[in-house]
Simulated scan of single mutants.
Amino acid sequence: MKKTLLLFSLAALLFQTSWAQGRFDEEVQTLKAKYDSLRPSLNPDQKTVVFVGSSSIRMWKNVEEISDQHNIINTGFGGSTAKDLLGYTAPLILDHYPDQVFIYEGDNDIFMKESLDRIMRRMRRIVRRIKKYNPDCQIVLISAKPSIARWSLKGQYQKLNKRFYRWSKRKKNMAYADVWKPMLNGEELKNDLFIEDNLHMNDAGYQIWKTVLQPYLIK
């Protein structure tokens, strides 16, 4: 355990320059300060699980209710992309010494017309950084979700989800959690899962996520 903590600390030092200047600096530093202050209250006998990614994670205000047997940390930030998370890997993930990380990126990337290849390259770099400093850390890739606002891009999202799935099958300590299908009625989107912007989820949407993701929590 001491070795792992040391490695994570080294990771923070090595990568702190990568997030020193960026569009989410203030938000990220606020998140880091919040959880730094809460760290003494975390249960040392429980596994620490970080949920990280774009606003679908950030707006999950009661994510800690997914389990009372884990230390749940939510470092979701803004309208982030895989590129953004790559730049903030240390303060949002490594500094919290997680035993498991749930990642939600790709939603905004597709909307911003990033290629699938570029998204995958950045996601692989994020995972490599985590694994370099804790090879045993379990990683769960959360599929891109469907939404009313971006339903016209569903083909691209489905292609990305297939890539996430195939990648996770090849890697040790990695899993793919599909939230796409449970948010559909057959081939049609469940329109009652979203708030007024038709992009972000309401409580019913997050209840689906909770049901899907709970079985993936580290034991």
Rank of each mutant, 00 (worst) to 15 (best):
F164I: 02
R121T: 13
L153V: 06
W209F: 05
C137A: 10
D109K: 00
N161E: 05
Y176M: 04
V179L: 09
Q207P: 07
I218H: 03
F164T: 02
K169S: 13
K113S: 11
L160K: 00
R121K: 13
S115H: 05
V127I: 13
E188N: 12
G205Q: 03
I130N: 00
M183R: 04
L189M: 09
K159T: 11
K181T: 15
G186Y: 08
G106M: 02
R125P: 07
Q158N: 11
S143M: 04
I148T: 13
K159I: 11
L189N: 05
S115C: 05
L193G: 01
I195S: 06
S152H: 15
M183W: 04
F111Y: 14
S152I: 15
L160I: 05
N161C: 06
R121F: 11
K210Y: 08
Y157E: 04
R118N: 15
K131I: 07
G186K: 10
Y206M: 04
G155I: 10
S152M: 14
V179A: 07
R150T: 05
D192A: 09
D192C: 09
G155F: 09
N198I: 10
Y216E: 04
D178G: 06
W151E: 11
Y176W: 06
K159L: 15
N173C: 09
Y133M: 10
I142T: 02
D203V: 13
A175Y: 09
D107S: 02
P182M: 10
A149K: 15
V140I: 09
L199T: 08
P135M: 09
D107P: 00
Q138A: 10
V140K: 00
G205V: 05
D197N: 08
N134F: 02
A177G: 04
D109Y: 01
K190I: 13
N161Y: 03
E105K: 01
R166A: 12
L189Q: 07
Y206G: 02
K154I: 14
Y206W: 04
L193Y: 02
P215Y: 12
A177R: 00
L116E: 07
G205R: 01
Q207E: 15
K190P: 08
I195H: 05
E114P: 05
I126N: 00
L213M: 09
R125T: 15
K210T: 10
L199P: 02
Q214D: 12
P182A: 10
R125H: 14
K169H: 11
S143W: 02
S143Q: 02
Q214L: 15
E188L: 11
P135R: 09
I110T: 01
Q214E: 15
D136E: 14
S147K: 03
I110P: 00
R118M: 12
N134Y: 04
Q156W: 08
K171C: 10
A175S: 12
Y176K: 03
Q214H: 15
N108D: 04
K210S: 09
R166M: 12
R166V: 11
G186V: 08
N173R: 11
I110M: 03
N202A: 10
Q158L: 12
G155Q: 14
Y157S: 03
R118C: 12
W209Y: 06
G186N: 09
I195E: 04
R150I: 06
N198Y: 13
